Simulated scan of single mutants.
Amino acid sequence: MKGDLHVHTNVSDSNYSIEETIKMAKENGITHLGVVDHDTTYGLKKAMELGREYGVNIIPGIEISAFDFEENKKIHILGFNFKLEAPNVKKICNEIIKRRHQNSLWQIKQLYEHGYDITPMEVGIKAKDSICIYKQHIMHVLIEKGYTDKIYSDLYTELFKGQGICSRDIRYIDAFDAVKAIKEDQGIVILAHPGQQDSYYLIDRLVDIGLDGIEIYHKDHTEEDHNKIFQYREKYDLILTGGSDYHGIYGSENEIGDITMPSEYIGYFHQR
């Protein structure tokens, strides 16, 4: 068995459809695939149906864009195997989707007013299968217009970071509310890439409200991160996961299955 429990599709911020993503997973020898689009459960039922066609066990999931308001830090929370109707998860995530879309429209307006040849309609075409417009869709148009040659280029940093003209973030969900919502929908809660976001300090408190595990294998994790996470696993008897964090051309160069979860934990995840 080979499980990649961190893959995105064009429902959020990848450029590949659900079917294309599952087909790639099959070709790369993945038996268990965690589909975790940002802040939405849309498409999961379709993914599970297609997974059965291709012989890939689809683990329905979500990656919630959360926040620790005390420390002013972004925290990503993964949820798996919740009830597909997910009323509690949807309730807290729907506002994020609206805020992100409105913020993206504002960013497009900023670019246009500063001389960039870009319109909401052009970006909307790139995002036609997504729940909302993401920065990656905006950058895709800028690439096609010749302003840069890749998504995470110097131009991306100049526009969206620091004092850039598009540098404005949205209000995210409280990390504790995200954990509670997934648990209320009978799901498994995993802390995503704590090494990337320096979120180890939250583990003790999150365990108290239902944290089930930690993502150990991720492209931004080092051997030091692996050792630290394993210590938490020993302390709290946690589940360990891992995955490629695949976003197609909108992400890093790794492919589906390049990073996988420890196989001994696959049994914790079953297809509903």
Rank of each mutant, 00 (worst) to 15 (best):
L5G: 00
H6A: 05
V7F: 06
V11G: 02
S14V: 01
Y16N: 11
I18P: 00
E20Y: 08
T21Y: 04
M24A: 11
A25L: 04
E27G: 07
I30S: 02
I30M: 04
H32D: 11
H32K: 11
G34P: 03
V35K: 01
V35Q: 03
D37E: 07
D39T: 03
M48E: 05
G51V: 02
E53I: 12
Y54S: 06
Y54K: 06
Y54N: 06
G55I: 08
V56Q: 02
N57M: 12
I58W: 00
P60E: 05
G61M: 05
G61I: 01
I64L: 09
F67G: 00
D68M: 09
E70C: 10
H76W: 04
H76E: 11
G79V: 04
G79P: 00
F82C: 03
K83V: 08
K83A: 09
P87E: 08
P87D: 07
N88G: 02
N88Q: 09
N88K: 10
K90T: 11
C93K: 01
I97D: 01
I97F: 05
R99K: 15
R100E: 09
H101G: 08
S104Q: 08
S104E: 03
L105A: 11
Q110S: 15
L111P: 00
I118V: 13
M121Q: 15
G124Y: 08
G124I: 10
K126N: 14
A127S: 12
Y134F: 15
Q136M: 04
Q136N: 10
H137I: 03
V141K: 06
L142I: 10
L142C: 09
I143G: 10
E144S: 14
T148M: 12
K150L: 13
L155N: 07
E158R: 11
K161V: 13
K161S: 15
G164Y: 04
G164M: 09
C166T: 08
R168Y: 13
Y172D: 10
I173Q: 01
D177Y: 05
A178H: 02
A178D: 03
A178P: 10
K183S: 02
E184G: 01
D185H: 05
Q186V: 09
Q186N: 15
I188V: 12
V189D: 00
V189A: 00
A192S: 09
G195W: 13
G195T: 12
Q197N: 13
Q197V: 11
I203F: 08
D204T: 07
R205A: 12
L206P: 08
D208T: 12
I209C: 04
D212T: 01
I216K: 14
I216Q: 13
Y217V: 08
D220Q: 15
D220W: 14
T222V: 12
T222E: 14
D225T: 09
N227E: 15
K228D: 04
F230E: 14
R233G: 03
E234D: 15
L238P: 00
G242D: 07
S244E: 08
Y246M: 07
H247C: 05
I249R: 14
I256C: 04
T260Y: 12
P262F: 05
I266D: 10
G267K: 15
F269M: 05
